[in-house]
């Protein structure tokens, strides 16, 4: 040893005071803390800007009016058809995505042998699906749902003109369902995994079959998680524009959509139209901000609900385990 370790070192060292200021720690903690703060600030600036400016032009009339042909005119325009279109397409989407997503998650957590290549393959596919660019989903919807399924349906049903083989709320919803499938699967899986295995074992030990155990014990416990998944999917889909560009959205429609094969107007697409096609951006600005605010309220309200449900679920699980 270089110095005898134990005989007490000189008294100055006894105080446990550091000899020098640890500049690196101070600097880098500050730097990373600043990065965190910067992200929060970006979020705050965007939200504040929209809420403050959008609130002034938001009115009940604006929300409940169907605009006549010139929707750039602040005095007469409204966003009712867009709200109806956006809500409608995510509603139809939910009907398709929830069952498929939940059942896939049940297979992955309850049935699949965790190490088999097939399971890993499914997981890889789910993860990959989550990363496919939204515009590619749009192309897929156009190539598969409209040009393949739709046209063949038309031929099969002998429609007079293109009925199914054209952009429609149904195809947009199906495209969005494909896009949000991973969101539902991941959220459901997470909540299924959080259920203690003891519960399943207890049910099985009482002579319940696996299916009975899943339906009566596992799923009721996982319900909040499944709801979270559904809400997250809806909030993600509500704001997406790229996948519906070619599959169903309309620039302008005089009437509200009434059938699944109708086209629709959409809040997100309307934001795009108002901000890029306006003949006079200064005049359009107030209604643009109001439209964005409506869209944000829709997606953020859903997001907040998901976060709240999730937080309550975690608390409950912590109490259980």
């Amino acid at each position: 040893m270089n110095r005898p370790p134990n005989p007490a070192p000189p008294d100055s060292a006894k105080s446990f005071r550091s000899e020098r200021f640890d500049f690196a720690s101070f600097f880098f903690t500050g730097l990373t803390g600043f990065a965190t703060l910067l992200i929060v600030a970006i979020l705050a600036v965007i939200l504040l800007n929209i809420v403050v400016q959008g609130w002034e032009s938001l009115s009940w009339r604006f929300i409940s009016t169907i605009p006549k042909d010139n929707f750039f005119d602040p005095a007469s325009t409204g966003v009712l058809p867009m709200i109806v279109g956006t809500t409608g397409r995510v509603f139809v989407m939910t009907i398709f995505v929830l069952p498929v997503g939940v059942i896939t998650a049940i297979y992955l957590t309850e049935y699949a042998p965790s190490t088999s290549p097939l399971t890993r393959f499914i997981r890889a596919a789910v993860n990959n699906l989550a990363g496919v660019p939204s515009i590619v989903f749009g192309l897929f919807g156009l190539g598969f749902f409209i040009n393949f399924v739709g046209r063949n349906l038309d031929a099969l049903l002998d429609s007079p003109g293109p009925t199914w083989g054209q952009p429609a709320i149904l195809w947009a919803s199906l495209t969005l369902a494909v896009m949000t499938l991973p969101v539902v699967i991941v959220a459901t899986e997470e909540s299924l995994r959080a259920i203690p295995p003891g519960l399943r074992e207890a049910s099985l030990a009482l002579g319940a079959t696996k299916l009975q155990t899943i339906l009566r014990v596992v799923l009721p416990q996982a319900l909040p998680g499944i709801m979270t998944g559904g809400i997250l999917a809806v909030s993600r889909a509500a704001g997406e524009v790229a996948p519906i560009l070619f599959t169903g959205v309309a620039y302008y429609m005089a009437n509200l959509p009434s059938k699944l094969t109708d086209q629709f107007m959409d809040l997100g697409y309307h934001v795009y139209v108002l901000s890029t096609q306006s003949p006079n951006i200064e005049q359009t600005r107030p209604i643009l901000y109001a439209t964005v605010l409506v869209l944000l309220m829709l997606t953020f309200a859903l997001n907040f609900t998901a976060i709240l449900i999730r937080a309550r679920m975690r608390k409950k699980l912590r109490a259980l385990g």
């Binding site: 704001g239 790229a242 934001v271 901000s275 869209l295």
Partner: peptide, 12 residues
């Protein structure tokens, strides 16, 4: 929460 802002809003 930042990921909850639709990209059309970020673009706007």
């Amino acid at each position: 929460l930042l990921s909850g802002i639709p990209s059309v809003v970020v673009g706007f």
